[in-house]
Structure formats: C-alpha cells, structure tokens
Amino acid sequence: MSDVHPVSNHLKAGEQQDHEHPRHELSYHAKRVYAIRELLLEKGVLTQEDIQRQIDYQEARSPANGARLVARAWVEPDFKARLIADPKAACAEMGIDATSLNEFVVLENTEKVRYLVVCTLCSCYPRPILGRPPDWYKSLNYRSRAVIDPRGVMREFGQGVADDVEVRVHDSTADMRYLVLPQRPAGTEGMSVKELEKLVTRDSMIGIVDALPAVPSL
C-alpha cells in the first residue's frame, strides 16, 4: 500500500482505486482533474454525491442494455416494430433509462443492407444504451475513415461485406443517437432470449461487425 495514495485523497471511499499509478506520477491533466474536483467541491458548485451518482449511472450503462433490446426484437416481431417506431418507449418498456437521450433511432440490418455508425466531428454515441464508447470509436482514424471507406474499415475489423449488400453509414452530427439492430444469426432458432443476448456484442450494435454466430451444438 505504501506506493498507493490514500483513497481519501483520491477518489472518495467506495469509488474505484487507481492501482496503476502512485499519485505523484499522475500526468499533468490527471492532476488538474483532481484539482478541479476539489475546487468545485470547495465552492459548492457540486457535491461528492453528485459525482458519485454520475459514476454509478455510467457504470450501470453497458452493452447489456442494448443486447436485451436486440435479442427481444429478434424473437418478438411486435416488439421489434415498437423498437423501430419509438425506441425510447421500447426502452422504457424494458426498464432501460433512455431519458437522457435527446433522440434515439434504431437502424435494422437486413440481408441487403448493413449500417455503420460514426461521429466524424466528436464522439456522439448512445451512452445510455451502450455505456461509454470504446477507444477505437473515438479515434481520429475511425472518425476519418468510416465515412469514406466503410467497407475497408469493416474488413479491418474482421468482416468484409459482399458487393451486393448495400452499406449505409450514419454520421451522428446532431441530437440523434443511433443503434444498429444486427441480423439474427442463422441457426439460433432454438435459443432462448437470454442465450441470444450473449450473441449481441457492443460492436455489432455500432455496426462494425455482425452479431456472434451461434455456437454449434455438439
């Protein structure tokens, strides 16, 4: 413990501890974040509870939320129709809090159409549904290339798209947040919703790859 700074100086009790770095090794910007927090608390601009609530909220957001939406849409055509017509209402129905989203659009992949989501200007992402975006989604290379070379990018992530399938890229530049509804993998007819959820990866809901294939039963 000697090289790790006391939790009380750092994130407060109950928060994650940073075991990577002793405090004096924190970077210039990391130190400034702690200083900003301290000053905002001192001035009463925000409270530790406000911060903790946000951390808890973000930690509770994960691709599992999106996977629940997708898996249910695969097995229930009526739910799929509702999810596409009014995604926020469909989230509410599933107990997924999407209220902080301005607007939410679901893009359905088909045999003939594949969607891919990017934000070329910053990092817009359906955080209430999928959690924080992955590093690659925020990278300059993805932001640059996804619009001009989506097929090349998808190939780079391991899955090329056949020439007779249309690729549609969505650049989220405004208040809309986009979620891809991947196609249900073949051979999953007998699977339960819970089993199907495991096939719905975060990356498949960004559209960069398909949902995972069904594991062939032996």
Binding site: V167, V169, D171, T173
Partner: peptide
C-alpha cells in the same frame, strides 16, 4: 460524395443536417 469511392454504387452516407 467521394470521387474515389470505388465500392458498389448503391452505398450511402446519412448525415443529420439543420
């Protein structure tokens, strides 16, 4: 949109614009 876009001609890009 891109002069150099070599892939199938039906591919699209959608942008939210005011």
């Amino acid at each position: 949109v891109w002069e150099s876009y070599g892939a199938p001609s039906q591919d699209r890009v959608y942008v939210d614009i005011f």
